[in-house]
Design a protein around this nucleic acid. Sequence first.
RNA 1: GGCGCGUUCGUCUAGUGGCUUAGGACGCCGCCCUCUCAAGGCGGAGAUCACGGGUUCGAAUCCCGUACGCGCUACCA
Length: 483
Amino acid sequence: MNITPRVRFAPSPTGYLHVGGLRTALFNFLFARHHDGKFILRIEDTDRNRFVDGAVENLISTLHWTGLDYDEGPDKGGDYGPYIQSKRLDIYRTHAQELIKKDKAYYCFCSPERLSMLRQEQKHTKDQAKYDKFCLNLTPEEIQKNLSALKPYVIRLNVPQNQIIEIDDVIRGRVEFNSETLDDQVLIKSDGYPTYHLANVVDDHLMKITHVIRGEEWLSSTPKHILLYDFFGWNRPVFAHLPLLLNPDRSKLSKRQGDVAVEDYRAKGYLKEALINFVALLGWNAGDDKEFYYMNELIEKFSLASVNKAGAIFNTEKLNWLNAEHIRNKNSVELLPELRSALKNSVYDESFFSDEYLTKVIDSMKERITFVSEVITKSPYFFAEIENYDPDVIKKRWTVETPVYLSKLSEEFSLLNNPGKEDFENALKKTTENLNLGIGKLIHPLRLAVSGMGAGPGVYDILFIIGKEKTIDRIKKAIEKLS
RNA sequence: GGCGCGUUCGUCUAGUGGCUUAGGACGCCGCCCUCUCAAGGCGGAGAUCACGGGUUCGAAUCCCGUACGCGCUACCA
């Protein structure tokens, strides 16, 4: 049997893409690409109370940014559309009717009041909270009467009694449930919309989904889904329930305890490569020590069998390291757009810098940063003149003789014609020889003069990047200000 | 409360009965390199493999129980 796997990412449009959702999407994507299968995006918007304007568009654009491109989806089309559940309402209705005909589902006219009373009572007697199948005993006449009186109703799943339901989960192995513990789940709500349980089963079947890869929070409701597959007479897909992403306190990852939206991480300056790499490692490992991955390597190595069972805390320390690693592994031209956009959001948004200049700046700072925006914050001297000199560095590196030495050096520099790095270096060495000084006596105050600080790229790199004129100018200003 | 899942350094993890005095990575600390800061190299601290029983010549690895954590328990997904 060699069928093409078809998997899906089925988020509900809450307004943003949750990092847990990103992880689910990624694992689906990796599985599909690894097996030359199809990856489908389906929007589960069956809760009209939670409708958020523009949420779908936002989700799609964020997903697009991450590079998790799908083969079929709302904006992409495909043979099994529509891919938005709110546009498939009559499909669910027809299927619910089919279940009613088979006595596998039934109309329920119970009021919310009765339901909550029932629940309270069960809570009191410490019974399991379950619908009591009251409406299952309605006669056809009563049902018809209620229906023509337009009495609000839901359609419920008729869960059989005392039946063992087995799930063979790829990640967790065999899991058993007794149908006694299952509630007669609402399938169609009183507003005519389906619940997740009905919609996801119907759609997965109609869209020919072969593997359902989703978060562990769905494991408990899987027996209800299995029941539905059986009632419809459909083959079940393969199930794989992924471990949850956790807050630092080990509860399910949520807002309130930090950022959960992919957009937030993007805005903070995380590279999509780093985010994908990091999220892939949360719950998956190839069985070796490799930690730095590109997407194509993930696709190649990924396997559901090597997914962990236990939840993982979303701890950004390692994400930061991976971001720095991915920055170091990119060339300066690739990083240029990132710097440009960081610049646009900085105080230097009005200033002009050439691509050539910024590229040199990036090269000099690339391995000293965790975020591209730190090029600006950690080396502002590449973007503006020096306003402040680090007092600690002044204290440590600036002596009474320094102005004299630097003047000599400046004279030497002024002799240079279109100098390169080595020319600056040679000029400095020549000056120290003439003055009979150790090289440090010049190099440290020089760094202070041209950068205002004590840390950064090699001085000759800085000099070369800012150029001879600015170098001489800054030396002069430093002498004025610090003497 | 019920049902389900899980439990290896602070965190992410390797480990599928002997190769393990439990390996790697992040973070932390120290040393080296060095014009500074990084990067890099080397080293260190850090896990009685949740606990208790078994099975076995031998268990982090298999079985049972307990504890703890988490998830679900909606006309939310």
